[in-house]
């Protein structure tokens, strides 16, 4: 018998759980597109969000790349911010005390240019009260290992994951790079290294050139492509990874409305993150939550997790 959905509350229908963390809904905001959370307090009710991911944090503050850092492309944008951030310590002392006033899950995104840096950042963040989980950005080059991008190598990704898992006091979500031949191998490697969940995808590496000056439009030459243009790639990767791993997946990549969110859930994500859309539609996350609730009610879905990995493959 179908429940009477009209009597069900928003939280009953939309609540989800990932790695033991309870989220009031599956809508999170993506690292790098939401500052340290507080920047949005004037625009949306942060208490409505399932959670948010902080800007990437390193053990020490970072200046970032020279400008120009962004360029718009068709259906998306390239960015090469260079991970400018206030550092893990300032996040703990300056941001967390204010963020704790909000009833939403705080995920600290962490990156490093060596194993030691990841561990150093995690150890600082372990002292901070109010963080629900860590999300590891593994799309940086490892300076100690000849600059290989950790996220491109299953063994390097696995060793960062297991090292972080040993010190982390909170669940660890590993954010996967799409700039790989087979994302499933990366997913499996970090799953066996102990990752509690996966988030995917990070940005795709791209370049844009001004045809008159013949110069790259970004000072860094290459940047990360994000926005609606990357969504089909992200949906495909979420689908592929969901076929092979047992840990929960958080889908990211060009999500700009509730319909995009539903698509990711059906492909195999348990939750989603809104990224680039936060820039050009600052209330996008709230509209997505409202849209998901309405969709569930209209489709007679009493609990949103019913949608997860519900993709119907065409029978042969």
């Amino acid at each position: 018998m179908v429940d009477n959905l009209s009597t069900k509350s928003e939280s009953e229908i939309l609540a989800i759980e990932i790695a033991g963390i309870k989220f009031k809904n599956p809508v999170l905001t993506a690292s790098g597109t939401f500052g340290y959370g507080l920047d949005f307090a004037e625009l949306i009710d942060l208490n409505r969000l399932g959670g948010f991911c902080s800007k990437g944090l390193s053990p020490k503050p970072m200046k970032g790349n020279p400008p120009p850092r962004i360029v718009e492309t068709h259906g998306g944008m390239l960015n090469a911010i260079g991970l400018q951030n206030i550092g893990a310590k300032a996040f703990v002392t300056d941001k967390l005390p204010l963020l704790r006033n909000y009833n939403t899950q705080i995920i600290a995104n962490v990156f490093g240019y060596s194993l030691d840096e990841y561990i150093e950042a995690i150890e600082i963040l372990n002292q901070g009260e109010g963080i629900a989980a860590y999300e590891l950005n593994i799309s940086c080059p490892n300076v100690k290992e000849g600059g290989i991008v950790i996220g491109n190598s299953p063994s390097a990704a696995a060793s960062v994951t297991s090292a972080v898992k040993r010190v982390a006091k909170r669940p660890v979500i590993v954010k996967l790079s799409p700039n790989v031949t087979d994302i499933k191998q990366l997913a499996l490697a970090v799953e066996s290294a102990g990752a509690d969940a996966l988030s995917l995808i990070n940005t795709l590496v791209g370049t844009s050139i001004d045809i008159y000056s013949r110069r790259p439009r970004l000072a860094n030459i290459t940047g990360g492509l994000s926005g609606p243009a990357v969504k089909p790639i992200a949906v495909r990767m979420v689908y592929e990874v969901a076929q092979v791993v047992k840990i929960p997946i958080i889908g990211i990549g060009g999500i700009a409305n509730w319909m995009d969110a539903v698509e990711f859930l059906i492909a195999g994500a348990c939750a989603i993150q809104i990224g680039t859309a936060n820039y050009y539609d600052p209330t996008c996350s709230i509209k997505t939550i409202d849209g998901l609730l309405e969709y569930c009610k209209k489709q007679n879905i009493s609990q949103i997790s019913e949608l997860v990995k519900s993709i119907k493959l065409i029978a042969k």
Binding site: K63, G64, P67, I70, Q84, T276
Partner: peptide, 25 residues
């Protein structure tokens, strides 16, 4: 500067500012 958001979150529109012997974006 080219901006994606206009309210501080994208950190895309930075300019180099001199501060004593150092600089910041």
């Amino acid at each position: 500067a080219r901006m994606a958001c206009g309210f501080g979150v994208c950190v895309g529109c930075v300019v180099e500012i001199q501060q004593s012997n150092d600089f910041s974006y």
